[in-house]
Simulated assay, not measured.
Amino acid sequence: MKRIAIGLSYNGVFFNGWQSQLDVDSVQDSLEKAILRFTANNKRIRVTCAGRTDKGVHATLQVVHFDTDVNRKMSSWVRGINTFLPSSVSVHWAKEVTEDFHARFSAISRTYTYVLYCGRIRPSIYKDLVGWCIYDLNLENMLMASEYLIGLHDFSSFRASGCQSNNPVRFVHYIEIKRNGHFIFFKIKANAFLYHMVRNIIGSLIEVGKSIKSVYWIKELLESKNRSLSAPTFSPSGLYLSYISYPDKFNLFQHTNDEDIAIPFL
């Protein structure tokens, strides 16, 4: 029995999230069915991912592991699984790893990128691929507000009511906010995230960018530990799981650079 890690990307528009569910399409179901067809086994191979994404959320890099006794070259795993996947999902690489590797628990950090289009007219050609805001946002104020979120904090004010985590404390390494024409890119790296944490942070920063709330409001939200005081959960459309960091000992080849995450269509 060997353990294999794979890196994949997917367009979340076509799925009801990552996790396998009854009577709806999920990324996990599509991947497991593709592996089953490629290996020609009668037994379905279960996969474990680095981070479960919600309905409509995309990934430029999701990391998955599974155990199998099927012997194939790593390049064959990539080509073979892709043959049976829908066009909205692609495997980019495969690597045999040691049995102590775990896609979720071995991860040191996760990075999400949110792409926001600001303009009066809805961005038709980017439908479901970017978030949309009709306002011209104040980038400087959002940057100043985001600094309050850096470091180790209780993020209760930014977790969804359905969050199952026992501990609301997370460490945010950095938040970058950059503008490119009508697009604003938010990049957030943390050791882990609470349910809807990124989308709730984005929604709250946008309130600051619209000058509806002050820069210091974000600090007040953190201290309040009260979800009802923060902004509504923002749209999933522009959210991308874009990088997973692992200890060097696993020597994973990953197709993107943590310091230069590119959204392929922009």
Rank of each mutant, 00 (worst) to 15 (best):
M74Q: 09
S76T: 15
R79Q: 12
G80C: 04
I81R: 01
I81L: 11
T83D: 00
F84C: 04
F84K: 14
F84A: 08
L85C: 03
S87D: 14
S88Y: 12
V89L: 08
V89P: 00
H92P: 04
H92V: 15
W93D: 02
A94I: 04
E96Q: 15
D100K: 08
D100Q: 07
D100W: 03
R104A: 07
R104Q: 08
F105Y: 15
F105C: 04
S106W: 04
A107D: 05
A107P: 10
A107E: 08
I108Y: 02
R110F: 05
T111H: 08
Y112H: 06
Y114E: 00
Y114N: 09
Y114S: 06
Y117W: 11
C118R: 05
R120N: 13
R122Q: 12
R122N: 09
P123A: 02
P123E: 06
K127P: 01
L129G: 00
C133E: 12
C133P: 02
Y135D: 00
D136K: 15
D136V: 00
L139G: 04
E140M: 11
L143F: 01
A145I: 06
E147S: 11
E147Y: 05
L149P: 03
L149D: 14
L149W: 11
I150E: 11
I150H: 06
L152M: 04
D154A: 05
D154E: 12
S156M: 12
F158P: 05
F158I: 00
S165L: 10
S165H: 14
P168I: 01
R170Q: 03
V172W: 02
E176M: 06
I177A: 13
K178V: 13
N180A: 07
F183H: 08
F186Y: 10
K187F: 00
H196S: 11
M197Q: 15
L205F: 09
E207Y: 06
E207M: 13
V208I: 15
V208S: 09
K210A: 09
I212H: 12
S214E: 05
V215S: 02
Y216C: 00
